[in-house]
Structure formats: C-alpha cells, structure tokens
Design a protein around this nucleic acid. Sequence first.
RNA 1: GCGAAAGUAGCUCAAUUGGUAGAGCUCCAGCCUUCCAAGCUGGAGGUUGCGGGUUCGAGACCCGUCUUUCGCUCCA
Length: 513
Amino acid sequence: MSQKPEDFFKHVISHSKEYGYIFQSSEIYDGLSAVYDYGQLGVELKKNIRDYWWKAMVQLHENIVGLDAAIFMHPTTWKASGHVDAFNDPLIDNKDSKKRYRADVLIEEHIAKIEDKITKEVEKAAKRFENFDAAVFLSTNARVKEYQDKIDAINARFKTALNDNNLEDVKQIIIDLEIVCPISGSRNWTDVRQFNLMFSTSMGSVSEDANTIYLRPETAQGIFVNYLNVQKTGRMKIPFGIAQTGKAFRNEIVARQFIFRMREFEQMEMQFFVKPGTEMEWYEYWKKARLNWHLSLDLGADKYRFHDHLKLAHYANAACDIEHNFPFGFKELEGIHSRTDFDLKQHEQFSGKKLQYFDPELNQNYVPYVVETSVGLDRLFLSILSSALKEETLEGGDTRTVLNLPPALAPYKAAVFPLVKKDGLPELAESIVKDLKFDFNIAYDEKDTVGKRYRRQDAYGTPFCITVDHQSLEDKTVTVRHRDTMIQERIAIDKLSTFLEERVSLKSLLKTL
RNA sequence: GCGAAAGUAGCUCAAUUGGUAGAGCUCCAGCCUUCCAAGCUGGAGGUUGCGGGUUCGAGACCCGUCUUUCGCUCCA
C-alpha cells in the first residue's frame, strides 16, 4: 500500500471499528482514554489467539500447567515485588523547557555532583601526600566533611519528605539546592506530583476498616505466590512452568497508540522454574521457542526481531524483547526475562514462608530460578490485525480490502451462501450451516450479489466461502472460494468438514510448531 | 503532562469571506437472479464530540472541556 504509516494505522483503527473488531470504551460518553472494548469479531479473534497460546504452552508441554489467579492480591504482594516503591515516581516539570524529570533523580544527580567534589579532593590529596590513607583523609579533612554533611542532610530531608508524602517539601528541596533544568538552565519548576502507576480500590464495606488494595499491575505475582501450591499438588518436578492469562492494570501517564498501550490489558505469561545455574540455557530455549511460535502465524519473518536489554531491571540477569514491526515501527511484543530467584526470595522474606524446592537428584533444597515469557495479548491482536489488513489491487484495477488472518485464528472459519435466494438453495445452505456449526464458527449470508458477499467476508477475514448453486441440488457439491487467492474449487458437501478441519483448526497450526 | 493536528450519518468526506447540514458507500424493506463490491424502487440514520461566549444568524470565529493521531516524555 502506498500509504504513509500514519494513514495506514488510521486505516487499521477505522477498519477495526467498522467491522466490529474494536470499539472505544464508553463511546457514547465520549470514550474513556486508552480503554477499548472488543466487538463481535474482535472477541472471537482474541479468544482464538489466547487459545492458540494456551494450547502451545500448556497442552503441548507436559511440564507446564495453567493457573488463574485473582486480580486482587494481598497488598504485601506489591511491597515484596517492588511495585509499591518502583511505581511511585515523584515527577516535576520544567516550565521553560517543558521537560519532565523524576524529582528523586534530580536530587540524586545533585548529590552525585557533590560526591564528585569529594573524589576530586581525595585525588588532589593523594598526589600531595605520600603514604596517603584515603579512609583517614575522608574522616578528617574539613572540606570533605562539609560536603559529606551536606549530602547526609539532603538525604535525610529527602527521605523524610518521601516517607511523609510531603511533595511540597520535595519541590522545596529542589529550589533550596538551586537545581536547574539541564536543558533550559532555569529554575522555573512546576509542583511535584506523584504518579502511582497502580490502580487502587478499597476492600471491605466499612470504610474506616477498609484496606487499600491494588488492581494487579502484572499477572506474574499470582504465579509466584502460588508456585509452591502448584508444585506440591501437581507433583511438579523442576524444570516446570506455570502459565496464566489475565487482565492487568496500569495507570499510565501517557497511554496511546490504540490498543498498543492500554490502562487495562491482558497478559499471557509463563513462569518457568529451573535449577539455579541452568537459567541461561532455558532463557535461550524460550527465546527460540517463543520466536518460533510467532513465526508460525506466517505474518512474515521480517516483521520480528530480538532486542536484548543492555540495562537490566533489578530482578533480571538477562532480558530481551521480541519486537514486532507495527504500523508505527518496531515495538515490544513479548518479553523474555531471566528473573533469577528475586521474586521468590522477596516473597519468602515478606511472608516468612519458605518457597523452596527439594531437588531429589541433588538431595538438597533451593529457591528455583525463573525464566519468564510474557506477551501482551492486545499487542499480539494488534500485530496480527495490522499485518493482515491489506488493500489489494486486482486485475482490471478493482481494489479489495482483505484481512489475511491466519485461518485458524479467523473469527469465522467459513461463510455459507446460497447463490440466489430461491429454488431451495437457502434451505440447502442452511442445512450445511447446521451441520458445520458444531465444529466451526460459520457465517450465513443471503443478501446482495454473491460477489459483494465475498468481499464482505474478505473484510472480516473469513478464509473460505461456501456457495450453494443449482448444481449442488443435483450432485451434492458446492463451490469453495479461497480468501487469499480468490480461486474456487468444487467440493462434495460431505467432504466440507474434513476440508475445513485440515485448514482452519488450531490443530493444523499447532502441528507446525 | 507539554506541543502540533483533528473530531460533521455506521464508514470516507463535502458545505464560497459566518447565511436552510449534503454526497458516495454502508444499513433496512422490496424488485431482479447474476460466482467477485457497480441494476431498479423506497426508507432509516445528525442537537456538526460536549459546555459556554461573540453575532440578527455559528459546522465555521473565541474560551473551556473530552477524545484520537503524531512529536517530546514515561514504560518498574
């Protein structure tokens, strides 16, 4: 398509709405920012993607089992995971440069500058004196002490301000320290605001007794807190995995790009528990396995790439993303992280419960290491929909809009048409629908010319159209028209079920893995 | 959150310097009976995102607000 990426993305969005894939939430009330609903076709596609992932992960791996943990979790969970601290960033804007900074980072950078001065003093002194003892110098030199006192004072004040949630004082610290914006060089700051990326609500009907609880910002913790339950009751032996799909919620400051970054979204995660020291092997294994899964959708190998994280999160010793080429460029689709034993250790510490595994081969206990695969279902949906949407120019200059969805994921597997709405053709067509509908989601349409109906199903992404004509009454065969090639072939009615099964079932897709 | 652009029927878009809100497609009911969106007849669908202001008169101008896309920012 000779469209600008931006225009193509708008086309994806309008197509999604026009054909019932995605609607904006609460649209009649002007919508809710960055929240979307899945329509009648969208819910089918989403369900099929989820099913394909689930079967590929759980059904095809005897050492992976499923879980469905609640969205609400004990508040301490989020202290242990680090989300309470990490998701509470005090932010401040410079009014002149319009740049936003984390207030704590600005203050820490200021402290770092003072520390540099100390280092320089030490270096100077080291050159001047023989037998220089840095430790003695640090504790005795007046200038160094002055610097150090300054640092301690700032730290103490900042810590108090944060603990008391005293954002005015955080701003005052920045003003008192005469911190300037690196871009504009000005001290024209806004107030400090706290952005809590976790949604909270209260549990219990009596408000005084109400406990603040959070809507989970990730599904992983539900797996970690249940890891021992599953291991014991499922008699799981390491290495083993726990898979889960479900909603997570993040109060993003900026949530945009259609369903790419939503405030409410669905994750599909698998946490794989391994013996410490073997995690890199498994990390490589899952990198390959997950990329392979994406490639099986046949949307084009050039649309995927790995992006290795150079800066690792506090919990990880290796991490990468599988990125997909969205209409707005390569962006993260799935993350594969080697999370070490960080999460389980944290939960051991905060809960006081042992979360260890007894390894019969080693005859010893240990906290397993975890390799995580985490994919956004909504992002996957968007990657498939935007890769599948095509505006084709046919011979003769005609254009058609077609969704080349992987057949196994398409909302409708086939559509059945009577060529004309008389002569008993609708009755025969309906009897075919009746027969197929137990195994496949089938559409029926008898309105408008058959060509128009074909194009309508192309826009839906239906891989096959089955047309009943007068010959069908004679010899019990029908025309099957292929979505992608538009080629037609004649098939016996009693062979339809097998024909579809081979081409549109999840089984056919799973076998390619 | 800052900046830019935009918001008119289900979709894509019109509407002279401010002067009666329209078209195509879609949809619905019928006619026609045709294997790739194109025939005929009729019909439905709108307080122009919302609220206020200027004006004799606002879809258009001004202010506010909501939503979307883009850039910056953020993304444990």
